[in-house]
Write a protein that binds this DNA or RNA. Structure first.
Lengths: 155, 155
DNA sequence: CTCGATTACATTGCATGCAATTATATTGTA
DNA sequence: TACAATATAATTGCATGCAATGTAATCGAG
């Protein structure tokens, strides 16, 4: 099983691509962040905080590491983030009596109510993307497949 | 011109998508970062520092704002980054005599030499992606088109 | 049951990103 | 030429991300 021979120019292009594909992902993520910013400002949330709230709105009372697995984030990021959400009175942090190592994150009433305000966010994002739902769905699936492949390559 | 009516379930899915497309980009960018990390560690560079070096290897002597435009980064990010590259003796920072507001970034000999070592990086990335060059090229173009659309939606 | 391994979270240190502000230099205009 | 507007970096403050380390709780092999 031998790969087809590439010309020197094709090889150079392939090498450039190795850099470009990552920069494309990197700069797209930042562009999304800029679009989200004004929308999330009205909620008083940063984008990672918004992600955490999305998780909690679906499944309240998760432990820190459970949220971390869903979002690919560790305690070094999440502990201070949850402390800020706690200071904002959106969540409470309590040790799990069943397992004192775990800290359960629970929404406060204010945290639950914020969900209503947050309903404006996705339509704003979809509008900014200026693409059909079908197109975006396909694009998202390609992102996710690539991401999972990259994570698999680490293991 | 009226959009087709969507069922409630379809609407919910569309709203979820607004969140999912961004998270897909966000988590893909982080996955890339994790793949790059061990490769860049051998160069003593972080990913943003590597991006800056890629730019300088192509066009030495750019001003801070010119690099910033190419990478979508501002002086708040780049000034400390360049100072660290300067401390690592990879670049020099000198005011442009023609326009004292600008700071020109120039590679040192060591900075230019690092380019050889850096040739190993893109193949490692391409391997981790586990996709044909053609596939990756298309994916990259889709990323870029979405990113440009998002940036346009801000203006 | 016991003690080493593992797990979960917290902490520290470092490097982004970005908003907001400041300082300095240049440009444009009356 | 004066001087307001603009442009370029630098600085400050805040919030990630992540590696490395610390601490306490739990698990598991013998």
């Amino acid at each position: 099983m031998e790969a087809k021979r590439m010309s020197r120019k094709q090889e150079d292009m392939a090498l450039l691509l190795g850099n470009q594909i990552c920069f494309a992902a990197y700069s797209t993520a930042h562009a999304f962040n800029r679009v989200y910013k004004p929308l999330l400002d009205t909620l008083g949330l940063t984008y990672p905080q918004y992600l955490v709230m999305l998780v909690l709105w679906e499944r309240d009372g998760l432990a820190v590491n459970e949220v971390g697995e869903l979002l690919h984030l560790d305690s070094g990021t999440l502990t201070p983030l949850f402390k800020r959400l706690e200071a904002a009175r959106l969540v409470t942090r309590t040790r799990n009596p069943e397992d004192e190592r775990q800290v359960r994150i629970r929404l406060t009433a204010a945290g639950r109510e914020l969900r209503e305000k947050a309903k404006n966010v996705p339509p704003g994002i979809l509008r900014a993307c200026n693409r059909s739902v079908d197109e975006l769905m396909k694009l998202k699936d390609q992102f996710v497949a690539l991401r999972d492949q990259l994570n698999a390559a680490l293991g």
